[in-house]
Every structure is written in C-alpha cells, then in structure tokens.
Design a protein around this nucleic acid. Structure first.
Lengths: 242, 242
DNA sequence: CCGCTTCGTGAACGGCATTCACTGTGTGAA
DNA sequence: TTCACACAGTGAATGCCGTTCACGAAGCGG
C-alpha cells in the first residue's frame, strides 16, 4: 500500500520519462538552431550522452522523433495565439485579431526551425506512425483561435454576420465544419461558412507575409518589414470586414 | 580561317557544355521528383553515368549545382508569369493580373521541388559563389511582371493612380526602387511607391495560398482548392483596387 | 610530336540513419 | 531471497551521403 500515488510507476519508468523528455527537448533545440535540414539524430544522441542506436529505444526512427517535435511545436504555436487572444479579451475584434496574427508572426520569427517544420516542409520528414504528426487536427486547433475571436465579435454585434449565402454545395471539409461547430459551442455564437472562408483567406495572406519574410525574400523589397506587416495586416483585416 | 562562327569553340568545349547541361537538367528533374531534401549529388552522377567526383569538374559543390538549378528555376517561373501577361495583353488589368497570379500557382503546383527550393528553404542549400543563386535580382524580375501589368493599367486610365502620399521616409529598398524605375521605362508609366507596396501585399497573399496549398495544409479546410483560390485572388485584387 | 590542360576514375575520409547481437541491471513473481 | 525476464544501453556493421585526392587517359595548342 505505502505510496498511493505513484505506486504503479516504477523507478525505471520515471527514468525513462526523464531521458525521453531530454531527447525530445534536445531535438527541438537543435531543430530551432540548425533548421530542418541540419537536423541530425546522431547530434541529438551526442548532446544527451547516448549512443545513436539508444535513441531507437525511445523513437522508432528519426521521422518519429521529428514528428513528436512537430506535435509540441503545433501546441506551442497554438498557445502563443491563444495567449494573444486571451490577453486582449474584451477589446475590439479588430485589435484582437491584430494581436493574434502579430503573435503568429512573432512566433515564426523566434522559432524558424519549427515554422519550417510545420509549414514549409514536404511530409517526408513527418508522417510517422504513432503521434499524429501533421494531423490536420493540429492545424485546425491553430486556426480555431482567430475564428473564436471572430465568433466573439459576432456575438457582441461588432461584426456583421453575412446572411449565410449559399456558397455552392459545400466549401468547407467535414473536419473544418467540426471546427466551426466547436467554435459555436465554445463562444455561443454561430459563424457562417462564409466568414470561415474569409478567415482562411486572411490567415493565408498573413502566412504568406510571414513565410516570405522569414526566408529573407521581403528584405529585397521592404525597408521596415515590421511596419509593412502592420500595413499588410490592416488591409487583410479590412477585407475580412472587421 | 575556315569556319568563322565557332572557331574558338573546340571539340572538347562543346562536349563539356553538353554534359554540363545533362548534369543540370538531371539535377532539376531529380529536384522536382524528390524534393530539396531527397536531392542527392551521387544520384545525379548515377543518372548521367558519371562518378560522383566527376561532377566536381563542373560544379564546385552540391551547393553550386543546386544554386544553378535555382537560377534557371527563377527564370522559368518568371517566364511562366510573363507568358500569362503577354497572352492577355490588351485585356482588362484585373483579368491580366488574375492570369498572372493563376500562372504563379500553376507553376508552383507543377514544379513543387523548384518552388520549395526558391521560397521555402533556408539558404543553406543555396548561397554559392558563382551564379548569383538567391540573388534578390531574380526575385525582382519575378515581381516585375505583375507590376508591369499594373503600370500598363495605370497608363490606360483603368487603374486609379493614388496621389503619391508621403509614406514616411521610404518604404521600398533601393533595388526595389530600381525595379519601379525599370517598369516605368518599359511601360512608359510611373507607378508610385504606394501601388508598389500594395502589389507586394497582393503577391504575398497569393504566395501564402499557394504555399499552404502545396504542402497540403489547405486540404484540411477546403473542398475545392482551385475554386477557393479564385475566391481568394478576387479578394486580393479587390484590395489592390484593380 | 610534346607538354599541358582537362575529363574522368577509384579509393579514401568522415558523417549520416538504421539494424542487430550483445551485456548488464532493475523488476515482478515464485 | 532467488530467478527469469523485460529493457536501457552498447558497439560493430551496412549502406547511404558529400567531398578530396592521386592518378591515368585523352584532347589540345605550339
């Protein structure tokens, strides 16, 4: 009987969890530092003081390891967006969306390796077997944040709710429709398919700026990339009608 | 005296050019097929029937080879845009820009490896020494195409030319301003800094859609990605005021 | 014809991911 | 307490990879 809490957790299990975390966080750090291409399973093993082959006791392959990192990266990105949304709760919708999308850019600039991993990599590095790696659900959770802000704005009458014009048979996939439903549950306000599509467009436009900025392509054109982001974001939010 | 044309071109020089082209085109094909990450110098050597070390008689390193491919990829992309612009010469500006940006998406979808190489890769693979690899000038040439279409529209009075409001000290870099000047020379019509920035925003928004689409992220949301692209593009062109 | 440049080879080095037979050791049951 | 076993970790081996280097075999200009 003795300890009631962690009776089932043996000494070895605890140690395993420790080294597993060590491996994963080392992998994330190296990914941030050296990028997707510079990533090396052996380097991770070196850093945690293990033989390369020992890593395979924890992850089936390099792919699985990277996928695990991708998973936490998705969560961290979503957290960053959600924090921005929470910090601005009660403010005008436009300002909140500005904050959320600015957080998106900030996260990308401070986590270039993870951004590359999630958004700019062919799936050869991901698509493992155990932890849903580039599972659409992760992306949905991210997208859900700005959508909830929009729903909140609709609920407070700030944002005009388009009269749900019939946009052909159906433009959103079933999983995306599920997101729409969950947003409605969480915020108590429906968001039509139309605004959902508009929000996808907005997110896409913001993503484009961030992606090009991150890889240095905007530096060829723009002197002050931060200021021009504000400008770009403003135009995007205008289009969104918020 | 004999042949006046290729007197200075020896038999060997010609053969060299042939194998060089063979290497480069093989590299481009493999890049398209296997992506940036799956690219292998040894595989290229295998395909052209050479020893890996023999490649170094033609390119200083794998980096140099990839950079050369990137250069031609830039040119091909620019050609694709320019063709779209030329084919629609005389039509309405909006339709022409639609054609140009649709060509951008089409090129990306048919050349995923090259797109990744140009826009979604950290410069570790590029930045060679000989042929300006990810030189901003290449990007400028690409960007110049839609800008010329816009200038043409301004010249024909279709597009309202904003009254050149002072947008702070200067938003465009000097090379970008040079593009603006060249556009003015080629089309005979000035394009203010303001429209140039708006066009950057438009291009950025389109790029975001293409990038996310290419990596399968939009499939999680949108049923008909082509139709939604038209929709997105329409909104972008509305913002542009064209 | 000769010397020189150039193309191509094959071996080698170090790094990579991955597999496998192996050793010790913590663990749970007898 | 003892025993068998599951399991973390090792180290060697395999087959990729990019890159270098010494060498042979041609084509080339004088």
């Amino acid at each position: 009987m003795g300890e009631s809490e962690d009776r089932a957790i043996s000494r070895r299990d605890r140690q395993r969890q420790v080294t597993l975390d060590e491996i994963t966080s080392s992998a994330q750090r190296q990914l941030t530092e050296h990028g997707v291409r510079g990533f090396s399973l052996r380097a991770v093993a070196r850093e945690v003081g293990l033989t390369p082959s020992a890593i395979y006791r924890y992850y089936d392959s390099q792919t699985a390891l990277v996928s695990a990192v991708a998973l936490t990266a998705y969560e961290q990105a979503t957290d960053a967006l959600r924090t921005a949304a929470d910090l601005t709760a009660g403010q005008h919708t436009r300002g909140r969306l500005e904050a959320v999308f600015t957080a998106y850019r900030a996260w990308a600039l401070t986590h270039p390796g993870e951004f590359e991993l999630l958004f700019a990599t062919d799936q050869s590095l991901l698509r493992a077997d155990e932890p849903a790696p580039s599972d659409p659900a992760n992306l949905h959770r991210l997208y859900q944040v700005p959508l909830e802000v929009l729903a909140d704005g609709i609920g407070r009458g700030e944002v005009a709710c388009a009269p749900e014009a019939a946009t052909g048979p159906q433009a959103l996939t079933r999983p995306a429709a599920a997101v729409r439903r969950e947003v409605a549950e969480r915020t108590g306000h429906e968001v039509g398919e139309e605004p959902c599509l508009a929000m996808v467009s907005a997110w896409v436009s913001v993503h484009g700026y961030v992606a090009l900025d991150l890889y240095g392509h905007l530096g060829a054109f723009l002197v002050d990339r931060k200021a021009c982001f504000r400008r770009h974001l403003g135009a995007v939010l205008d289009t969104l009608g918020v």
